[in-house]
Amino acid sequence: MSATVTAEKEAGRDRRTDWKLLYRKYGIVLIFFAIIIISALLNSNFLEPQNLMNIVRQNAVIAILACAQTILIVSGMIDLSAGFVLALAGCLACGVMVNTGSVSAALFTGIAVGGLCGWLNGFLITRFSLQPFIATLAMANVANGITQVYTGGSAISGIKELKYVGQGMVGPIPLPIIIMLFIVLLTWFIMKHTKFGLYIYAIGGNEKATIASGVHVNRTKRLIFLLSGLFVGLAGVVLMARLNSGQPSVGVGKEFDAITAAVVGGTSFNGGIGNVFGTLVGALIVGMINNILNLMNVSTQYQLIIKGLLIAGAVIIDIRTKSAKS
């Protein structure tokens, strides 16, 4: 963090640019607080600690998935298979749990399956020059098919202790939130402080220049997909554990929720720009919007419409503030 402090000190010499920089950098945080204030005014229950805790807990899985998408989008790629891979990994983990009774074996299976699917995505993309969009679309179908075959379309119940991964508490804090924070911090550390992180940004910013700088771009891309796949697998286990069973169809559309969180959080689809704290804020913004609409008894159909408009609005504001240069 010391680097950031120095940077701000340096930028601080010019008072005007300082404000603009602040605005550009933290515009999404302003929107975040604005939504909190508006929600609190709309419904007095919103600020109840239990409610706030619920929002975070319910969105922990999306936030983990969104960390995976952030890495991918920053490097100029995308994963459309995340939702189905999440279901596959989660269901296989539940199956292993039911058969072996071992939580660690189940966790390992879920994470490994996610990682394997991710790595395969990366392999297809780098070995055969497939677009990430296409390769992961193919993977989505395959993963969904395997999940349906494995589960026969019905939930896997009787997951015993595995449920604590999704329902356990560490003191007053739900375990999924702890896991989410761990993944967010891990992603932050990787993106900010490792050479792998530097390459993630560089590939998304300018792939050719990154190759010309001597970086193994293809190897890095495979690693990116592997890492994001591990996150997806973990998210799958956490979700199924929370739901108390392996649900084969629960992953549908989750990748878009994750992409939404990343984009609302300021990750640029042009690549090279974005950070995981923005993504976390983005996930929470989407979660809060869902929550306040629920509290106000808005029916789900209308919720979808309002959510869509709010997402577009948030991103427009973000883009506006970011392009407000000098």
């Binding site: 560089a202 910013g205 300018n206 220049a209 010309a212 690549g271 090279g272 720009i273």
Partner: peptide, 12 residues
């Protein structure tokens, strides 16, 4: 095209 990643910092 080949020299710089324009969206990243000088340091990066």
């Amino acid at each position: 095209q080949l020299g710089l990643v324009l969206v990243r910092s000088i340091k990066d």
